[in-house]
């Protein structure tokens, strides 16, 4: 009877038109279980059939940090600030850096590594990069615990970190974590969308990330770089990751730079990067299977 009105009552439409940003939060919410299962898959399967299992999540950062301390501080004599153990300094920088870089490299291969599934089934594609970032957040959490463990050890048991002074900016930590995630996610989505057509970027990402680490004040304080190489310092200074890492060290150890303007600048970059990544990702996801 009322079929004429019902005729227009479509649940959804599949069409070529693309909205500029087409984020269907309702749909993503409906697929939240998938998001969690992806995260679970990423976290669990990494060390399946290993003897040490999840212990690797501890061993990896420890050994990298030890190596860094040995090379950059003991050998190359990079100062890490008075009263701050260089081990703690490096652990702080590396934790942040790893969080960003694994999020970035993980998401940058979204389309390529999920080609099989994406080619067969539909689900909101954005779930895949989101899951990468969330599973990296879990890993970052573990690293943070390691960091706290050593922090307590150094402060209370050795007294070496007498000058380490966490301060009120620590309240910004959640914001910082989100911003780093946005930066990695945005960059990653951008690259992953472009790599579906232009494979060259895969190679660029490979060594680009490594080079970028040296420009992100991971193993040296920004102030030291400015002092030694003032003419290149802008390269490091305007790198949003430098801002974030310096801030992280400032809030936990009391060394590093914290300036509202730089922070807002880096936050702006992250958000713009994320939005840009999202737009490009959205444009790509509908047809990528034809070009990949």
């Amino acid at each position: 009877m009322n079929s004429t009105t019902k005729q227009n009552d479509w649940l959804y439409t599949i069409s070529p038109r693309r909205k500029f940003i087409n984020l269907n939060f309702k749909e993503i919410w409906r697929y939240r279980d998938l998001l969690l299962l992806f995260v679970k898959r990423d976290v669990i399967t990494l060390y399946k059939q290993t003897v040490l299992g999840p212990l690797w999540y501890l061993i990896q950062p420890l050994f990298t940090t030890l190596t860094f301390t040995l090379i950059f501080n003991n050998l190359a004599n990079i100062p890490t600030g008075d009263g701050i153990p260089s081990f703690l300094f490096n652990l702080a920088g590396l934790s942040c850096w790893n969080y960003f870089s694994t999020s970035f490299t993980g998401t940058s291969s979204t389309f390529k590594s999920n080609q099989g599934v994406f080619g067969k089934v539909y689900f909101p594609r954005v779930i895949a990069p989101l899951s990468v970032v969330i599973s990296n957040l879990v890993k970052f959490g573990i690293r943070l615990l390691v960091f706290i463990g050593f922090y307590i050890y150094f402060v209370f048991f050795t007294g070496k970190a007498s000058l380490a002074s966490p301060n009120l900016t620590l309240l910004l930590l959640p914001v910082l974590i989100v911003l780093m995630a946005l930066l990695g996610l945005g960059f990653g989505m951008l690259i992953s969308s472009l790599t579906t057509k232009y494979r060259d970027l895969t190679y660029l990402v490979g060594f680009g990330v490594q080079l970028l680490m040296y420009g992100s004040a991971v193993m040296y304080p920004l102030s030291y770089f400015k002092e030694k190489l003032p003419e290149y310092s802008w390269l490091v200074e305007y790198n949003p990751m430098t801002v974030f890492i310096e801030l992280f060290r400032y809030m936990t150890l009391g060394v590093g730079r914290f300036s509202i303007s730089y922070f807002l600048y880096a936050a702006g970059i992250s958000i713009i990067c994320f939005l840009l990544g999202l737009i490009v990702f959205n444009r790509t996801e509908k047809n990528f299977i034809d070009t990949v």
């Binding site: 479509w10 649940l11 959804y12 069409s15 070529p16 080619g119 067969k120 539909y122 509908k286 299977i289």
Partner: peptide, 12 residues
């Protein structure tokens, strides 16, 4: 999985 170049599909 992929979108049409033209036209649309409506479903209930």
């Amino acid at each position: 999985v992929t979108s049409p170049t033209t036209g649309e599909i409506k479903t209930k």
